[in-house]
Amino acid sequence: MAKPVAPVSTSDYIKAYRVMLVSRVLEDKLAALYRAGMIKGGVFLGKGQEALSVSVGIQLRRGDLFAPLIRDQAGRLAFGDTVLDTLRTYLGSALGSMRGRDGNIHRGRPRDGYYAMISHLGAMVPAVAGGLLARRLRGESGIVGATCLGDGGTSTGAFHEGLNAAAVDKLPLLVVVANNRYAYSTPNSRQYACADLLDKAAGYGVTGHRADGTDLADCLRTLRTAIHQAREGGGPQLVVADLLRLVGHGEHDDASYVEESLKKSRLGADCLQLAESHLLDQKWASADDLRSWRNEAEREVNAAADRVRREPIPDPAEEDWTALSTATMRENPGTP
């Protein structure tokens, strides 16, 4: 095997933490806007999953592919999505990348390698595999594609078909499973019967990696290794991270079904708080640093939210109401 994996440095850790922090502050803002009735549609947060998510997004390179899922605000920001576009999409600004045609977490810029998820879980696994296949056919190498999903997503046919097909072609695909214990309200015990989700890696003939989803350093290390192995020709990599979703499925959901014992367990720890303790313990940052970083994040988020609230909303009269790019293929019978 080629190059060794570079160790995770202090500055890597701090950089990742600061993206997690912006993500958390942004999501707190989204939750507040939701409660104030200002969000169009639902709000789906990744609280408790930032360490895992950021570790994916921040360690991909320009030119790689990334198809995040519902709880990947941190990974999205790390990969190049912005606070501004997140708010535009949630608040329904006409200037957002989805122009009001789709909302919340269903956003992306596919041409930039940032795929826009559909709600059907597992669907992005073969899509990223296909992107990688096309790159390979074009003669490009050294590219990695990553997609994220949850424990629920591993039960879908698309996950199975996509990972299997990627394994057959030995594509540099990273499938990151956040085992957050619940798919909406369905617990692991009703989701799968194998002893461990990571056991599935052997079944597909892919390399498996386990991460402690509450521990930023472990997530960074694990994802760095997995991405490296995919990039170096090791084929698909399946990462399973253990953690707990610290919010409801969406902000409409009080998550009353989450077992108390799980909340109190190690899994229920908040990865952001743990990272802050680690930064202080290691003396990589002071309490003042943490405060000023948070203030900075809050200023950015609040300024973006204020700006977006003054932006135009989509105008139905300006829409061309077509789903096809080719003008001659369009038709709209029976509509006024």
């Binding site: 073969p126 899509a127 990223v128 296949l133 074009r138 698309a158 078909e161 996509g162 097909a165």
Partner: peptide, 19 residues
């Protein structure tokens, strides 16, 4: 493989990348 969902999904990703 015998995977219609993956066949189409792979085609979609490939098309996004210009194929």
């Amino acid at each position: 493989p015998l995977s219609e969902d993956a066949i189409v999904g792979i085609a979609i990703g490939a098309a996004i990348e210009g194929a």
